[in-house]
Amino acid sequence: MKKLSLLLLLSVFVFCGCSDDDDDVRNEIVINFDNQLPQSESELKTEEGVKETPTDYYYKWNFKDPNNLVEFTHYYSEMGFGGGFTYTNKTDITTPGFNNISAITAKGKNGKVYFTSNSNSFTPAQVTNLNPDKYEFKGAWITNTTYAYLAIKEGNDGSTPSRVKQFSNGDWFKITAVGYQTNGTEIGRVDFYLADYRDGKTKIVNTWEWFDWSYIEDAAYIQFELNSTDNSEYEGVSYMNTPSYFCLDAITLIED
């Protein structure tokens, strides 16, 4: 009788444990801009930006997703997109150079529209969570731009002579998502290799791959840093030759 009672107790415990796990399913929100560009081969255009100082080259403007869940930095000049984030449906996977902002996939992860970014100290790419009490960052899908892909694979950045080298054994191109609190305190970093020629590998990302941000899910905002083994130096200052461009799609938030 005691053994039977113990078995019944254990059965109830296991059943309740499974039930609790099922109740822990949290809703996800995927950021989508597919309805924002009705014309093909187009990109975000605006004249709403301002120059933070009269000597600045770029106008700066922040834009939000259609549901006002996240906000993105955007820099542009009379010549076009300069940095931060833009969204586009361009499909050119053959033309080298910075004027080509197409993803090497020629499309988004699930639709036609995706984000292209150029992130550096002058035009930092930042995505801000506008509802941190309700949502956390989960991650996004990531791939290379055509510009960066051809620079790495063929040593062709569209300039004459080219300023980049074709990757060889030991080279790599890495993006780091850096999470920050509202007051600017860093809470963590997550790396992803957009190209990896270490240890005999010859991988350049040319499909959409998942970039997991769960380690920095509590960030109020995320900035992106890019580093490469292809660097040069001018007057004692080191700079990266590999184009500091990448593409994101389906940025995903999860309920807090």
Rank of each mutant, 00 (worst) to 15 (best):
K2E: 14
L4M: 13
S5Q: 15
L9N: 12
L9E: 12
F15P: 01
C16S: 15
C18S: 07
S19T: 14
D22V: 15
E28F: 03
I29R: 03
D34S: 12
E41P: 06
K51P: 09
E52G: 07
P54R: 12
P54H: 13
Y57F: 12
Y59T: 11
E71M: 09
S77A: 09
E78M: 05
M79G: 08
M79W: 15
T86R: 04
T86S: 03
T86W: 00
Y87Q: 02
N89Y: 00
K90G: 00
T91H: 08
T95I: 05
P96F: 03
A103H: 02
T105H: 06
N110Q: 14
K112E: 15
K112M: 10
S119Y: 10
S121M: 13
A125H: 04
N129D: 10
N131G: 04
D133L: 11
A140K: 09
T143W: 08
N144P: 03
A148S: 15
L150S: 05
K153Q: 06
E154F: 08
E154T: 11
S159K: 13
T160R: 06
S162L: 00
V164P: 01
F173S: 02
Q181P: 01
T185V: 10
D191L: 04
D191I: 08
A195K: 02
K201Y: 14
I204V: 09
N206P: 06
W208N: 00
W210K: 03
F211Y: 13
D212F: 06
W213N: 03
E217I: 00
Q223P: 01
T229N: 01
E233Q: 14
E235W: 09
S238E: 15
S238N: 15
F246T: 00
I254Q: 07
